[in-house]
Design a protein around this nucleic acid. Structure first.
Length: 409
RNA sequence: GCGUAGGUGGCGGAGUGGUCAAUCGCAACAGACUGUAAAUCUGUCGCCCUAUGGGCUACGAAGGUUCGAAUCCUUCCCUACGCA
C-alpha cells in the first residue's frame, strides 16, 4: 500500500557529516530537500501571488495555526477546502502549531528576543518594536495548555495540544506540527527543563489526537531544549521514539547555538524521517542546518526583509534605501535568475521604496525568496555532486567576506 | 496705492522676553529585522570641536529697547488675500 507521505534519502554527505539530499513526498507533490519553505503565515506569502511563489521555485508553503485560527477562523478555512485551496497554492503545505506564538506573544513579548537573540545580555534591550498601543496580556501556560488573548481584538482563547491538532486538521496542511512550548535562550536551565518536559507530554497528546482524527496528514514532533545539550538530547530521544512522521527542531537560539543544538539533536533523531528547522533562514544558518542533518527550513526573513528594503546578494545583504542605489541602473545581483533581477534595476527599486509603492515589496520579496530557495537548491545539488564543502566556502566567503572557519570561530 | 494676515531649520508648521539650536509631522541619512501583533521599528538630522561637554552662526533685512530678543519698537524688503 502506497503511503501518502514518505521520505527518501538520495544521498548522505560523507566524512562523518550527516547532511543529506532527499525527497519528501506529500499528497500535493514532492519536496526536493534540502529545501527552503516559503512562509505564508495567514495563508498568503506577503506581497506575492501564489503563482509568483511557485515560479520562483518555492516548493511548499508554511502557514500559521494561531493566525488562521483567529482570522478567518478554522471553520471558514475548512469550508474553503483547507488553507492551500483557500489561497490557491497547489503544492505541499505545512502549518506551524501555534506554539511559537505562545512564546512570542508571551514570555518574549516586548523583549528583544525572537528566533535568534543577539547575546546573553540583551534580553531587556527591547528592540524598540514593542507595540506601544497594543495591550495584549501575555499568554499563560499551564499543564493542560495555553490561555492567550487575541492580538486582534483582545478576546481570550485557549489552545491545548488537542485543540491545535484539531485546528490544523481544519487548516488541512500536508505536514503539521505538534503543539510545543518555545523558550528563550536566556531562560535558565530549570525553566527550559520544565518547558521541555511539558512539550514532550504535549507531543504525546498531539500524537494521540492526531491518530484519533485520522486526517491522513503527516505529524511532526518538535524538539526543544534550548542551548543545553542534555536537554536537547533528552528531547530528541523522547520525541524521536514517538511515532511521528518527521521532526521539527524548535527554540529561540543564540547565534552560536544553531549549529551545535541542531547537531546534538539530529545525531539522535531517526535518520529515516525528515527534519525541519523551524523559523531559521540566514545563509550561514542554512549551511549549518543542512550539514547537521536538517532537510527543510522556513523563515520570514526573505519576505520581511524584502518589505523593509533589505536585499540578499551573493556579496552580502544590502539596504536598497541607501542613497548610493538611487541611480544604479543594474539589477540587485547580476548573477541572480529571479524575475526582479531579470527585469528591473536597483534605481527602480530604490524609487519604488521611496515612493512607497506596493510593487517594491513584491519585487523585493521575489528576489529574497528566490535567493534562499536557490541557496537550498544549490546546496542540494552540491551534495549530490560531492561538492558541498567547496560550494559552502565559495558562497560564505562571498556573502560574509569570511571563511566558514572564521565564521564559526 | 490702501487694508488685513504673514515671513522660523530641505518642506509644512509650533513657539510670542530668559529653561530655544528651537515641540511636532514630512523628507533626508543610517541601522535593525530568523516557526510574521512587522509595507514595521530604532537612531541621527544648523556648523565645528580634545564631544553624556564646549564653541560658533541662526528664526526675511537693517537698526533699536533690554542684563537677556525668534519673541518688544522703527524702517525697509517680500508673500497671500481683500479694496481700489
Amino acid at each position: 500500500m502506497a503511503k501518502k507521505f514518505d521520505f527518501k534519502i538520495g544521498k548522505t554527505m560523507g566524512n562523518g557529516a550527516i547532511g543529506r539530499a532527499g525527497v519528501i513526498r506529500t499528497p500535493h507533490g514532492e519536496i526536493q530537500t534540502p529545501a527552503f519553505i516559503a512562509v505564508g503565515t495567514k495563508a498568503t506569502v506577503k506581497a506575492l501571488a501564489p503563482e509568483q511563489v511557485a515560479s520562483l521555485g518555492a516548493q511548499a508553503v508554511l502557514a500559521n495555526t494561531y493566525h488562521l485560527y483567529l482570522e478567518p477562523g478554522p471553520e471558514i478555512v475548512k469550508v474553503a477546502g483547507g488553507f492551500a485551496k483557500f489561497m490557491r497554492w497547489r503544492g505541499p503545505t505545512f502549518t506551524d502549531s501555534g506554539g511559537f506564538q505562545v512564546f512570542s506573544l508571551g514570555a518574549a513579548f516586548g523583549k528583544g528576543v525572537s528566533k535568534v537573540a543577539r547575546n546573553e545580555n540583551d534580553e531587556d534591550d527591547a528592540d524598540g518594536r514593542s507595540a506601544k498601543n497594543v495591550h495584549a496580556a501575555p499568554a499563560k501556560i499551564d499543564e493542560d495548555g495555553v490561555t492567550f488573548t487575541s492580538h486582534i481584538d483582545g478576546s481570550t482563547h485557549r489552545f491545548t495540544p488537542e485543540r491545535s491538532i484539531q485546528v490544523q486538521r481544519d487548516l488541512g496542511a500536508d505536514i503539521i506540527f505538534a503543539f510545543d512550548e518555545c523558550t528563550s535562550p536566556h531562560d535558565p536551565y530549570p525553566k527550559q527543563q520544565e518547558a521541555l518536559e511539558r512539550t514532550n507530554r504535549w507531543a504525546k497528546r498531539s500524537l494521540t489526537e492526531h491518530e484519533r482524527g485520522g486526517s491522513g496528514q503527516a505529524l511532526f514532533g518538535v524538539v526543544q531544549g534550548g542551548k543545553y545539550r542534555e536537554l536537547r538530547e533528552s528531547s530528541a530521544k523522547t520525541i524521536g521514539d514517538m511515532d511521528f512522521d518527521g521532526f521539527g527542531i524548535g527554540g529561540s537560539f543564540t547565534k552560536d547555538d544553531i549549529g551545535t543544538a541542531v547537531r546534538w539533536v539530529n545525531a539522535i533523531l531517526p535518520a529515516d524521517r525528515p527534519r525541519h528547522l523551524l523559523g531559521i533562514g540566514e545563509p550561514l544558518d542554512i549551511f549549518l542546518g543542512v550539514e547537521n542533518g536538517v532537510d527543510t527550513f522556513d523563515c520570514v526573513s526573505p519576505t520581511r526583509l524584502g518589505r523593509n528594503g533589505a536585499l540578499y546578494t551573493a556579496r552580502g545583504r544590502i539596504n536598497v534605501w541607501n542613497a548610493r542605489y538611487v541611480s544604479v541602473f543594474e539589477p540587485i545581483d547580476k548573477k541572480c535568475d529571479c524575475y526582479t533581477c531579470e527585469n528591473f534595476t536597483l534605481a527602480y527599486l530604490s524609487h519604488l521604496f521611496r515612493a512607497q509603492e506596493m510593487l517594491a515589496a513584491t519585487l523585493a520579496s521575489i528576489h529574497n525568496l528566490r535567493f534562499l530557495v536557490r541557496l537550498a537548491e544549490d546546496i542540494r545539488k552540491s551534495i549530490l555532486e560531492d561538492a558541498y564543502e567547496r560550494f559552502r566556502e565559495d558562497t560564505l566567503s562571498s556573502y560574509y567576506g569570511r571563511s566558514y572557519e572564521q565564521l564559526r570561530a
